[in-house]
Simulated scan of single mutants.
Amino acid sequence: MRTGSETTEPHPIKANIVLIGALVANLGIAVAKFVAAAISGSSSMLTEGIHSLVDSGNQVLLLYGQHRAKRPPDALHPFGYGRELYFWAFVVAILIFAVGAGVSIYEGWRHIREPEPLRDPLINYIVLAVAMLLEGTSWAIAVRKFDRERQGAGWWRAVRRSKDPTTFIVLFEDSAALLGLIIAALGVWASHALGDPRIDGLASIGIGVILALVALLLARESKGLLIGESADPDLLAGVWSVLDDYPAITSVNHVRTVHTSPEVVFVAISADFDDSLPMGDAERLIERIEADLSARFPQLTSIYVRPESAECAVRHPRPVLRPV
């Protein structure tokens, strides 16, 4: 009996304007910050330059991950390469922690131990103002995109439910960048106002701590996607609802799903069919179920239906939708 259907091509992963916009902004900001740091000798400005450079590298890696994830299935990877994007998202989290946070904290500690003489901070303020404008623009684009995707759900719940790491990584990176700019500006101002260059080093450490916290959060979310997360509860409920429309199904034992990329879901269904149903009719019924599910939920590119008696199957309860 044929119990599965599968499309030959995975869902396309769309080019991300959020990533491209963030990359262009961060490259320009990084150059400006390094120039300002060289002129002023500011530790927090140097840290901010490293931060922007790391962010630029992260966007390149995510774009590369998107490109690699578009490859079609083959004999070695029959469900495609979509989850490679999750691998590169995890690498990004590691880079933020190891390079961004690590270097920032080290630079801050070094400037506290060996403070440099204060110089004219004007160039710092100019660069920080321009950087805040560019980062704010990138942040606003990421917020608008994420706001459309969350569909009324709370922000934190939307992050936990999101299967596309590119959106929430850029959102968190830009949020951390804006906080870092504010801390850097306060550090530069306080260093000159109080005549103590060590304050600038403390600001650098503060930026590093923020990056470390963001990196740990991103690593946690990316790890879940890399291991394999189930589909959104709304999609699961929709699959169960479709199965309810078939009287010949006496019991649904379980519906198991896993994302193989942000927009592609594998689903395996175990159902108990009416014992009086002839085998030929059961095959045609399974074909109709698969066609129905594919039509209603295009992201279900691999659908497998397994006839299994309720007594022998491992049963999973029907998901209960929570209010957003």
Rank of each mutant, 00 (worst) to 15 (best):
V242H: 00
G187E: 00
K223A: 11
D174I: 09
L194C: 02
R198I: 09
Y246E: 05
S191A: 08
I210Y: 01
P247Y: 04
L181H: 06
S204K: 01
L216R: 05
L179G: 13
R160I: 15
W189E: 01
T166G: 05
G154T: 13
A190C: 08
D244F: 02
A212H: 03
E229P: 06
L235K: 08
G154R: 13
A153H: 02
G206F: 01
E221A: 07
W240S: 03
S162Q: 08
R160Q: 14
L186R: 01
L171R: 06
L213C: 14
I227R: 08
G187I: 01
G228H: 14
A203V: 06
L216P: 11
I199D: 00
T166V: 06
I183P: 01
P233Q: 06
V214I: 11
L181A: 09
V170Q: 13
G228E: 12
T250S: 11
A158W: 14
L181N: 05
L226Y: 03
Y246L: 07
L211R: 02
G208K: 04
L213V: 14
D164K: 12
A153W: 00
L179T: 10
L236P: 02
I227K: 05
K163Q: 14
E229V: 11
L226Q: 10
L243P: 01
L225C: 12
T167G: 07
K223Y: 14
A231R: 03
S204M: 05
P165S: 09
V209K: 02
G180K: 04
Y246K: 03
L202F: 05
S241N: 15
S175Q: 13
S175H: 10
D234Y: 11
L243I: 09
